[in-house]
Simulated assay, not measured.
Amino acid sequence: MLNARIKLRHLMAFLEVAKRRSFARAAEALAITQPGISKAIRELEEILQTPLFERTSQGVSLTQAGLTLLRHAGPAMRALDEGVSAIGDAHHGGRWLRIGALSTVESRLLPVAIQRWHSASAAGQHDTSVSVVTGASAYLLSRLRLGELDMVVGRMTEAREIGDLYFEHLYYEPLVIVARSGHPLAQVTPVAASQLIAYPWAVPPPQTTLRQQVDSFCVRHAITLPPLLLETLSLPVSYRYTLESDALWIAPREAVIEELERGLLKELALPFEAQGGSVGICTNVSMTKSLTRDAFCETLRQVAAERIIPRS
Rank of each mutant, 00 (worst) to 15 (best):
E158C: 03
E158G: 07
A159S: 13
A159Q: 03
E161F: 00
I162P: 02
I162R: 06
G163N: 04
D164Q: 08
D164M: 04
L165D: 08
E168P: 01
H169Y: 08
H169M: 10
L170A: 10
Y172P: 08
Y172V: 06
E173A: 01
E173M: 08
E173P: 00
P174N: 12
P174V: 12
P174G: 10
V176F: 03
H183G: 06
P184K: 15
P184E: 15
L185I: 08
L185V: 09
A186D: 01
Q187V: 06
P190G: 06
A192W: 14
A193S: 14
L196W: 07
L196V: 09
Y199W: 09
Y199L: 09
W201N: 01
V203R: 11
P204I: 04
P206D: 13
P206H: 15
P206W: 15
T208K: 09
R211T: 03
Q212C: 06
V214P: 05
V214K: 09
C218A: 15
V219F: 03
V219Y: 07
R220T: 05
H221D: 06
H221M: 07
A222T: 15
T224G: 13
P227Q: 15
P227I: 15
L228P: 00
L228F: 07
L229E: 02
L229M: 13
L229N: 09
L230M: 12
L230H: 07
L233M: 11
L233R: 12
P236I: 14
P236R: 15
Y239I: 09
W249Y: 12
I250C: 13
I250F: 14
A251M: 07
P252G: 02
R253C: 01
E254K: 04
A255S: 06
A255R: 02
L264D: 01
K266P: 00
E267D: 05
L268C: 02
L268D: 01
A269T: 06
A269W: 05
L270E: 04
P271Q: 00
P271K: 03
E273R: 13
A274C: 02
Q275F: 05
G276K: 05
G277Q: 05
V279Q: 00
